[in-house]
Structure formats: structure tokens, C-alpha cells
Simulated scan of single mutants.
Amino acid sequence: MTPDELQAARDRTVPDVVAGGLRVLFCGINPSLMTGATGHHFAFPGNRFWPVLHLSGFTPRQLRPAEQSELLQYGLGITNVVARATARADELSAEEFRAGGDILTAKVEKLRPQWLAVVGITAYRTAFGERRAHIGRQERTVGGAHVWALPNPSGLNAHWTAQSMAAEYGRLRRAVTADPHPGTGTGTGTGSGTKT
């Protein structure tokens, strides 16, 4: 991929990988230029989403970004808080995040996944006005889905290793497996709300 091809992907949108009634809808911050150019979510070579998804037990093998549609057979999907591709997440405004939160809520209401997993705590805090949110299960619901905030798998997030990220993603997977139909969509689901 040439620098010109990447720059041409700026502000592109990438179709979601979604279906109704998913177990988990993973929600990225916004597409990278590589994702915008290829049409494949989490496509930047340093992004650890695909390895971590496998290490945490969500997929039986490590999928490549080009195999993203295979997630649907596992009851998993991908969307973003903000749809447009940028080189860096800090190019997005707080207003874009808040508007994205509203769009995401409507999307979740329509698709009715059991869980919404936002991969990026800062994006979650900004989009939903939850300034004190921590990594882990959240007390609130979004569009009727229970919410888990996960670490951002970007290679720039050096605080988290692939192994520590996989442990947190694994906590979500165990919660999904233990309670495959949490609550009734009214925000009264079970669980301790444990956070790290």
C-alpha cells in the first residue's frame, strides 16, 4: 500500500460486519487509513485485534482482516463509534464521538446484539459521557445491549500487551458464555459489574 493510496482513503467509510442478534458487536474507535483503503476492519499491521480475538478464545484460529465476514458464524460483528477513516484517532472531535454514540445506540437498538464491546475506553467515555468508566463490564446498557469496555488493540497502546489484552477479552468471552441471554433488554441484566 503506497502513501498516496493511504491518503486517498482519508474520510472513507467501511461497511460494518453485522447481522441481527449477534452475541457480541465489537465497536472500534474509527477506521484507520489502512482499513479505509482495504475495506477490512483492524487492517493496520500493528493492530492486535485479530490475534487477541483468537488468544481470548472468541475464534478457533487467528483470522486475517480479509476474513472478517467469518466472524458472523461465531455470532460476532464489527462496527465503529465514528465511521470515517483517519490516520489517528485524535483527529476526531468530541462532537464526532458524541454523534457517533447516538448513531451507535440506534444501530444497537436495530441489530439487538447481546453485548456491545467498545475497544477503546477513551472513545467509550467520550461517546457516552461516562468520564469515570473503567475497562470491564459497565453498569449501563446501550440500545438494550450490555456493555463491556475493552482495551484499544492499537499497537500504540503499549500499556497493554497482547497477553494482558487477551485476558480482558477472555473475561468478556466468559461472561457471554456464562450468561448467553443477559437481561431482557431493559438494563436489568445479571452480573457483578466487576472492573479492573
Results as ranks from 00 to 15, higher is better:
5 E>V: 09
8 A>N: 14
12 R>K: 15
16 D>F: 14
19 A>R: 14
23 R>G: 12
28 G>R: 04
28 G>E: 07
31 P>T: 11
41 H>T: 08
41 H>Q: 13
45 P>S: 13
46 G>F: 08
48 R>K: 03
49 F>I: 00
54 H>Y: 13
56 S>D: 08
63 L>I: 01
67 E>S: 09
69 S>H: 14
70 E>H: 06
71 L>Q: 09
77 G>T: 06
77 G>Q: 06
77 G>C: 02
81 V>C: 03
87 A>R: 13
106 A>T: 10
107 K>C: 04
109 E>V: 02
110 K>W: 12
111 L>C: 00
111 L>N: 01
113 P>Q: 02
114 Q>E: 10
119 V>P: 00
123 A>F: 07
123 A>I: 03
126 T>S: 05
127 A>V: 00
133 A>K: 07
133 A>C: 05
135 I>Y: 11
143 G>Y: 04
146 H>E: 12
147 V>D: 05
148 W>K: 01
151 P>Y: 03
157 N>P: 03
161 T>I: 09
162 A>I: 10
163 Q>A: 15
164 S>Q: 08
166 A>K: 02
166 A>P: 02
168 E>I: 12
176 V>E: 12
176 V>H: 09
177 T>V: 11
177 T>S: 09
185 G>K: 03
187 G>L: 06
192 S>R: 11
195 K>E: 14
